[in-house]
Design a protein around this nucleic acid. Structure first.
Ligand code: SF4
Ligand code: SF4
Lengths: 146, 146
DNA sequence: ATTCCGTTGCTCGTGTTATAACCACGCTGA
DNA sequence: TCAGCGTGGTTATAACACGAGCAACGGAAT
């Protein structure tokens, strides 16, 4: 019951890309350096983001990565689902017929409600929200300890 | 990002115990038969519930298991935490100092909010709620297909 | 002595977290 | 034009952790 490192790094990466100038292309190694991820692992993490249409890539000299969408159009849930697939707290919430008890089981609905609430929270934050928030925090940090 | 089988079976078990007459002692094998769990695995699952004070046990002839608390005093969150430990969506929410970014990271708070929402849902349902709900569903099922 | 539960240690499979080798693409300059 | 270099893309696989389940033995109650 914990998000994977892949999701964690993916969030960092997307937030980092969103902090660049619009359409600025970023090298993989620059993402690695700033976000504390190894290049080989980041390679793996980026692919689902590209498949999901969140990030796009450019090969060759001067190539790299950049956001494929407006940061306001990307939610944390999008990133989560790109990396981990559909959110599910219990198997019976997605794989129907995995449990013959679902007709009378009442726990089923509680898991469902918890899952919905969680999805709702993740859906309510866009990447641009995160960038804005982070920027505020950093300027406040500087004010306290310049 | 999925609850463990242990938690799933633990919920079934506690609900089953709550359906018995008050202070009725139930044999392990009866729980297994009705809840589709193997005895060896159930043995493992019951211990955390006992340690958490949710279930109590009786050894020897005529022994078995029964609820240690009133069903209204047991929430789904209690059962979850007995089996899986404290709910955490991301490591940084529990293990402080696991990430030096927490001072300015804004994702941190989103995970926290999602976790809180989920905990809130699980805390809002007691075992007696589940039993009541299940009973309603069963009587309605019988009405439709007697 | 019997009948229960408790404790411990173990196996086995699967998923996470990487690592690395090799492939494909695209620019650039001779 | 085309070779070469600098990028990301694909695939295979290793190491490890954890989930899920099993079994054997030990200990208490009756
Ligand atoms: S018993 Fe209920 S919660 Fe558990 S798997 Fe079946 S339907 Fe889902
Ligand atoms: S970057 Fe933020 S969300 Fe990720 S581990 Fe650090 S504090 Fe937590």
């Amino acid at each position: 019951m914990v998000i994977t490192r892949a999701t964690e790094y993916a969030v960092r990466t997307v937030v980092f890309l969103a902090q660049q100038e619009k359409n600025e292309i970023v090298l993989k190694k620059d993402i690695c350096r700033t976000q504390d991820v190894t290049p080989a692992f980041l390679t793996k993490i980026l692919q689902p983001l590209i498949k999901a249409g969140i990030v796009s890539s450019q090969r060759g000299v001067g190539g790299g990565f950049l956001l494929a969408k407006d940061p306001e159009q990307i939610t944390l849930l999008d990133i989560f689902q790109a990396e981990e697939g559909q959110l599910k707290l219990n198997h019976c919430l997605v794989d129907v017929d995995v449990c013959h008890r679902d007709a009378y089981c009442s726990a089923h609905e509680v898991w469902y409600e918890a899952q919905m609430q969680m999805a709702q929270v993740l859906k309510s934050y866009s990447v641009s929200d995160l960038v804005k928030r982070q920027h505020e925090k950093l300027t406040q940090l500087k004010k306290c300890a310049p």
